[in-house]
Nucleic acid binder design. Structure first.
Length: 816
DNA sequence: GAGCACTGC
């Protein structure tokens, strides 16, 4: 087993040792496949002139290699001809056009190619090849259902390349896009980044010759912004469409429209489960194809009665498996870190007290969740522990995991799955404008996916800690698509950028609640990204270019004017990191807290993040100096590394967007003024995320009310503020056991009035202490404005001495 | 007094 993230590529041999696995599985499920054509002899390939013939064959098979305008522009006819050619030569599946040379590159095919070709031909999806290409001759859209192990992700794109299409195949995850591309490059006997490549954020491994590109769904959406009809492709494949990610859903809506405008474009929607009928219905008239998977059977056990506490039940079930069941690893699905740590501890305790021989089995109990350091994560891929005795029993791993193990990570060797039936899921409440994580029942599709994790290497068992009737009647068919559970601010901004003007009538597969769309439009209007008529403004167009939430994009763009865009780039990058910046190992809390205090800025967390990044990046990137510094200061190196690359990307985009120099701070500013400007820039984006301290409740916990919505919130325990300022701006509203605001910084009341008078509009502001305070601030602001006016009038009466420079009014945010 | 999982030219 490899100590790395493995990917669901089906039972393909990626190295010699997995070939044996393949052997056993094909014995079990013999498929009638045509014998591969015999590899051409070396003599035939060495003949003079063969190379030229190969080039000609290549040109026929792939019109894009000829670079003729007809082939590149026309797409349709060239592709059709090539597909016909493939169909007439049924049974051929390869880049070889009969002479042993690679049709794409003209280079002699390697011996490895022929070996892999043989196994490719045994994949279930190979049977579907002719039919698939025939469907694409007659239809623009095809829905393909292929279960785990069908080989659809690696093979279907190759079918299309062989037929002459330039192909984009989307994946919901980076690892999938990169590792599948690597695998397919090997299968096609080409160099990665040449004919086959991948594109994910921060990593574009493609070139002029690329005809097959694996990319994340978000990446294709980005590409659509600069190439709205996706002219670089003749065929798009949306893989893992059943996962219904935000980006896949937006792409489906867009593609529906693009397909009308580009009748030569083909789309294949690939799904692992169910829901296929829904895709077919959505893409009216699209044929549906099904390809069997290749997995081992998993028997399902339900509890006879509902369980009171699924953690107790899970622990008990694991102990029973250890006591009674033959060797094999156990995978337990729980909802979060806290639960997992508790379950691991209890399982370790309980199996110790089992009667012999069970207590003698070597067992490793391992946690697995995304925020776990990679080294700890990698342990789940290690071999199970070995017995202390030479002839002792085989050991097993027990892995307590979150949903990471459902889609992102595949652990071979798992024979038993314990499914609690719950996971934490994002939900969005448009009324409260809050995204939160709730422990919720999973769907039947999810349950099926979890069960499948037990049948990767041999037949397995899945213990569902709920009743069969609950499965049938209480679980939803499929998980709610993400688009129905998210704040759509960014989606709406992107769609506007893609010239989708009528969002209410945009053809979403599952239309979001009108209220959610209204909230998004309202947010973007307050940020001046959309005009009152709902049209994208110039500012909005710039915001759409930045890979950030709209509030942060607005803040970053405002910072250019204020001369602090260097700082805002850093803060935006630091806020983009999902990993916790400050580590607090349980054994070392006091020292970790002391280390953090050295970076803490009295104004609050945003400036603390800025300081931390500056201290880090001042160090040399050589000799592990930065990593050592992170270790000494209890700072998470992954968070800082990721912030470094995000910052670089943002800086590139920002300087393209800005006509002024961006990314460097005004060095003439004194520290206090500098800090104020940084906070003002932030507030230009986050003026809607402000809370006001409740009178007399300072320091007592839940002491803040959010402006306008009047939600009672408390500073998150991870917040660095030691005081309770009157006004704070926050990056995130977290709803867990209580309402928390996280990443919090003090702001001054007058700034609200100055920067966002359109939001802090007293004629339309809910009654309360915040409004009373604001009224006072407005009166002061008006007096000040009046004084300024008089001063300006007086100044204009006199001849000017110091022209403009230096005396410009501070906070000159022209948009406010 | 607390952190499901993904992602962005």
């Amino acid at each position: 087993m490899r100590a790395s993230l493995t990917l669901d590529l089906g039972p393909l041999p990626s190295s010699a040792h997995t070939l044996s696995d393949m052997g056993s599985s094909s014995k079990r499920r013999r498929l009638d496949v045509p014998t591969p054509a015999a590899a051409p002899t070396a003599a035939a390939m060495d003949k003079d002139g063969v190379r030229a013939a190969a080039d000609a064959a290549a040109a026929r098979a792939n019109p894009y290699l000829t670079h003729s305008p007809a082939a590149l522009g026309g797409g349709g006819s060239g592709a059709g001809t090539a597909a016909d050619g493939i169909l007439s030569g049924a049974g051929v599946l390869d880049n070889d056009k009969g002479n042993g040379f690679n049709a794409l590159t003209g280079v002699k095919l390697s011996s490895r190619y022929w070996g892999i070709l043989e196994t490719r031909r045994k994949l279930p999806v190979h049977e579907a090849r002719t039919e698939l290409l025939a469907h694409l001759d007659d239809h623009q859209v095809l829905v393909l259902v292929g279960e785990t192990g069908s080989g659809k992700t690696t093979q279907v794109p190759q079918f299309l390349v062989d037929a002459g299409f330039r192909v984009a195949c989307t994946q919901p995850r980076r690892v999938a896009a990169t590792s599948v591309a690597k695998r397919v490059a090997v299968e096609m006997d080409v160099q990665l980044g040449m004919e086959v490549g991948y594109a994910v954020r921060f990593d574009d491994c493609c070139g002029a010759k690329t005809v097959l590109k694996y990319l994340t769904d978000g990446m294709l959406l980005r590409e659509a912004m600069s190439d709205p009809t996706l002219n670089s492709y003749d065929a798009i494949i949306l893989d893992e469409a059943h996962e219904r990610t935000l980006s896949t859903d937006v792409l489906m809506g867009l593609l529906k429209d693009v397909l009308r405008r580009r009748t030569d474009l083909k789309l294949i929607v690939m799904s692992a489960t169910l829901d296929a009928g829904k895709f077919q219905e959505y893409f009216t008239g699209a044929p549906l194809m099904k390809v069997p998977g290749r997995v081992f059977p998993v028997s399902i056990r339900y509890t006879p009665r509902p369980v009171d506490n699924y953690v107790d039940a899970a622990v008990e079930q694991v102990v029973k498996i250890v006591a009674d069941q033959p060797p094999g690893d156990v995978l337990v699905f729980l909802t979060g870190e806290e639960e997992i740590d508790e379950a691991c501890r209890r399982i370790r305790d309980d199996i110790r007290y089992l009667p012999p021989p069970a207590c003698n089995f070597p067992v490793a109990v391992l946690p697995l969740y995304a925020s776990l350091p990679p080294r700890e994560q990698a342990k789940v891929f290690d071999d199970p522990p070995r017995s202390r005795l030479p002839d002792g029993p085989v050991g097993r791993k027990i892995i307590c995991a979150t949903n990471v193990a459902e889609t992102s990570l595949t652990i071979d060797g798992v024979v038993y799955v314990v499914d609690t039936g719950f996971s934490k899921q994002k939900v969005y409440n448009p009324r409260a404008r809050v995204e939160s994580l709730l422990v919720s029942p999973i769907s039947r599709a999810s349950a099926k996916q979890r069960a499948g994790r037990a049948g990767r290497t041999r037949p397995g068992t899945c213990y569902r800690l709920y009743t069969e009737s609950a499965f049938a009647s209480e679980l939803k068919e499929a998980t709610y698509p993400e688009i129905l559970r998210s704040n759509l601010g960014n989606v709406v901004l992107q769609l506007k950028k893609l010239n989708v003007n009528d969002l209410v009538h945009f053809d979403f597969m599952d239309p979001p609640a009108p209220e959610t769309l209204m909230r998004a439009l309202e947010l973007l209007n307050y940020l001046h990204a959309l005009s009152d008529e709902g049209d994208l403004t110039k500012l909005g167009a710039s915001m759409a270019e930045l890979p950030l939430p709209p509030e942060l994009s607005a803040a970053l763009l405002a910072s250019v004017e204020l001369g602090v865009s260097g700082a805002l780039l850093t803060i935006a990058a630091m806020l983009s990191s999902t990993a916790n910046v400050f580590l607090r190992p349980k054994a070392d809390r006091a020292r970790a807290d002391a280390a953090r205090r050295r970076f803490e800025h009295t104004a609050g967390d945003h400036l603390t993040l800025l300081r931390t990044f500056n201290a880090y990046s001042a160090l040399s990137s050589k000799d592990n100096a930065r990593d050592r510094w992170c270790w000494d200061n209890y700072v998470n190196p992954r968070a800082l590394q990721s912030a470094t690359s995000v910052r670089a990307q943002l800086a590139r985009v920002l300087s393209k967007l800005s006509d002024k120099p961006a990314g460097v701070d005004d060095s003439t500013l004194r520290e206090a003024e500098y800090d104020d400007r940084v906070l003002k820039a932030l507030l230009s984006g986050f003026f809607m995320q402000v809370a006001h301290r409740q009178a007399g409740k300072a320091g007592s916990g839940g002491g803040y009310l959010t402006v306008k919505d009047h939600q009672l919130v408390a500073l998150h325990p991870g917040c660095g503020l030691t005081r309770s300022p009157d006004w704070v701006m926050y990056n995130e509203f977290v709803l867990t056991k209580r309402n928390f605001i996280r990443t919090v910084t003090e702001v001054r009341g007058p700034w609200l009035v100055e920067l966002a008078p359109h939001y802090y509009d007293m004629t339309n502001f809910p009654e309360g202490a915040a409004k009373e305070d604001l009224k006072v601030l407005y009166r002061r602001h008006e007096r000040k404005m009046a004084r300024d006016k008089v001063e300006r009038a007086e100044e204009e009466g006199r001849p000017r001495k110091d022209k403009g420079k230096g005396r410009k009014k501070h906070g000159s945010s022209s948009r406010a």
